[in-house]
Amino acid sequence: MELAEIVELVKGTAVTPPDVAPQVSCAYSSDLLSDVMGHAPEDSVLITIQNHLNTIAVCTLAGINAIVLCHNRPAPDDMAAAAAREGVAIVVSPLSQYAAALALSSLPPASR
């Protein structure tokens, strides 16, 4: 799935530069960074409210390309800068995590 489609489905706004436009192939939802490290697959989009610099660090380690920040939680400057640097797209969405998951439901879950 293209980033542009994700932005549209979650009614969100990309806060990273336009050249950060990854493809994603599945979705994962969590606010626990250790959980993301342990379970989220590569090339997934992470649905979370963790608007924190460490989220980018974990995404980079786990090979996650895109983050949907729910409830319009803003990405702090240091987080946005790190995301741009690491090529992780951030989409800020007004939806809840549940609603965002439903919006992206055409994506398969992470294989277990």
Binding site: A27, Y28, S29, S30, H39, I47, Q97, Y98, A101, L102, S105, P109, A110, R112
Partner: peptide, 13 residues
């Protein structure tokens, strides 16, 4: 549940 939270959202819905 053995499912991921994302999958649960979709299934419950």
């Amino acid at each position: 549940s053995p499912l991921s939270k994302y999958e649960s959202c979709v299934r419950i819905h």
